[in-house]
Write a protein that binds this DNA or RNA. Structure first.
Lengths: 142, 142
DNA sequence: ATAATGTAGACTTCGTGACTCCACAATATG
DNA sequence: CATATTGTGGAGTCACGAAGTCTACATTAT
């Protein structure tokens, strides 16, 4: 029930790329600016490329660009590119139990939570995040 | 971002106990009826006892009972008894990055999701789950 | 005294998140 | 064309935590 570092890295990279209208961002630059291990970032970017969120160019002067406008990329896209389909419970894994207890009192709740989560993710675009960007004060460091 | 088996076990055990107004449910019974490994259930129950959700009695005829009415126990209580404080992002682990980027465009989103999740969990009591209990059809098994 | 229960906690296993490494492919530029 | 610069693909490593096991022990009803 936690946001993984990988997802965080992906979001950070994409918001970084959406920040200014530059043609290309090299892995090196993103890695350095966002403090993401270069080799790990490579893996993440590959997934974003494969899922069609960014375009890549190899060779000198190469790098990555967003394939769509920041307002056309929402967090759900990013989430699913990195983590796969959003699913809070995996009833398939518990088939035996689920079949025995045809009435599962929990499912509706997890479903409701999942739906509300998906909605928020879908409603939040890169652009929103860039605009919303406000100073966060860390007074609850502990 | 998934419900753990442990949490599922806890919820199932508690709904089972809230089902009928019986004085005591032995671990053996719960384990058997809900198909939860006995030894593992033991660990889970200890946490629920420690957190004050159930009361235990040792010796023959012993077992567990809910400490409160089903309508007084909500899912947030259960969640936190098992998983600890609800927190989608651990900014403390990423202190360095957070300090460098005082403006974190993602935080507000995760926060919104977390808040809505907490609200739903809080609003859902054991009683709700027992009432809501409806037959679930598994047509999306895959 | 004994059997039936829960308690405490060490130990094991396995999967996965978070990396690292290296060989390789594409391509801009001199 | 040679070379340097960039991304690609995939194997390998490490640590941690979820899930589960085991064993010794404490409590208490009969």
């Amino acid at each position: 029930m936690q946001v993984t570092k990988t997802l965080d890295y992906a979001v950070r990279s994409l918001t970084y790329m959406g920040n200014q209208p530059v043609e290309r961002y090299s892995m090196k630059e993103i890695s350095h600016e966002q403090h993401i291990p270069l080799n790990y970032l490579a893996k993440i970017m590959r997934r974003l490329v494969k899922k069609g969120l960014v375009r890549s160019t190899v060779g000198p002067g190469g790098g990555y660009t967003l394939r769509k406008l920041p307002k056309e990329i929402n967090l759900r896209d990013i989430y699913e590119a990195i983590e796969g389909e959003i699913r809070m419970v995996d009833c398939m894994d518990r088939e035996t139990v689920c079949l025995l207890h045809k009435t599962c009192p929990q499912l509706p709740v997890w479903d409701r939570i999942q739906l509300s989560m998906v909605k928020i993710l879908e409603d939040t675009t890169l652009e929103d995040m860039l605009k919303e960007r406000k100073t966060v004060i860390f007074n609850q460091v502990n």
